[in-house]
């Protein structure tokens, strides 16, 4: 390695350390060996709750909408964690500020012409703009149709009815595609539920635990061709064992 100036070198070391989880070893050859399968299952107690997440992109009322909507898309019940316990709102807020929200890797040059849904999202608005307009339009629609209440103020059954309307095309807006908005919202909700905890969702890898996905273990040489055998180890994150 070339000599870096001191602040740069410290930064480099910090970043280097940050990406090596406890479950990884670097051998002398530089070959990375996965040793995670040998990590004993962590205690099943949930990690201590940190301070509540403060959204960076969403305004207060938008944040209330996001929390209410994802709680219906993946509700909390006896089956397993809901989107709220999984931290999906935090995940979505972080995505708005990242490449997805700003369509960083999408072709966004015009002209933007109406076309069949078979050609994918063809809108001019960035996904985070679709969220902003979609939330405002949904809240306005709810206030008009549901006795002056915003979406977050409605009861669960009515919220489900509104979400079905967005999904199924019975609710439409002039300023933004209701179906486009719902499609992004549902996609991001599932992403936040199932992605590695490093992205802010899937707290304690609880959704992986629920379905039986071992996460970042990624080493199953001993587990191929084992008919009738359930894999026994709990999930790990890129950041190591999860509660």
């Amino acid at each position: 390695m070339t000599d870096l100036p001191e602040p740069g070198r410290r930064g480099f070391l910090r970043r280097s350390i940050a990406i090596v989880p406890a479950a990884t070893a670097l051998t002398a050859t530089g070959f990375v060996v996965a040793q995670n399968a040998a990590v004993p299952p962590a205690a099943a107690s949930p990690a201590p709750a940190g301070p509540p997440y403060t959204p960076v992109y969403f305004h207060t009322e938008e944040w209330a909408f996001i929390q209410a909507a994802v709680a219906r898309l993946i509700p909390s019940d006896d089956t397993g964690p809901g989107a709220i316990e999984a931290g999906v709102p935090e995940f979505i807020d972080r995505q708005m500020e990242g490449g997805f929200g700003q369509a960083a890797t999408w072709y966004m040059q015009g002209p933007f012409v109406p076309s069949s849904p078979l050609f994918g999202y063809q809108g001019k608005m960035l996904p985070r703009e679709v969220y902003r307009a979609g939330i405002a339009a949904t809240d306005a629609w709810c206030k008009q149709q549901k006795a002056g209440k915003r979406f977050a103020e409605l009861d669960a059954a009515t919220q489900d009815e509104v979400l079905k309307g967005l999904d199924g095309g019975t609710i439409q807006f002039a300023e933004v595609g209701a179906k486009d908005f719902f499609t992004f919202l549902l996609q991001n909700t599932k992403e936040g539920y199932f992605s590695d905890p490093i992205h802010g969702g899937n707290k304690n890898a609880a959704s992986w635990k629920m379905i039986g996905f071992p996460g970042a273990r990624a080493d199953f040489l001993d587990w191929v061709n084992k008919p009738g055998v359930h894999y026994p180890l709990p999930p790990v994150s890129i950041n190591g064992p999860q509660g």
């Binding site: 990406i19 989880p21 479950a23 990884t24 530089g30 070959f31 990375v32 060996v33 996965a34 995670n36 490449g99 997805f100 369509a103 960083a104 890797t105 999408w106 072709y107 966004m108 992403e191 199932f194 992605s195 590695d196 490093i198 992205h199 996460g215 970042a216 990624a218 890129i238």
Partner: peptide, 27 residues
């Protein structure tokens, strides 16, 4: 392979599988 595909970062479904970190930047 090292550093771009090194474990554990490569096991990130969101960044690679869904957002397509290794794919052509269509912008």
């Amino acid at each position: 392979t090292v550093p771009d595909f090194a474990y554990p970062r490569i096991t990130d479904e969101l960044s690679y599988g869904i957002r397509g970190k290794l794919f052509q930047n269509l912008s």
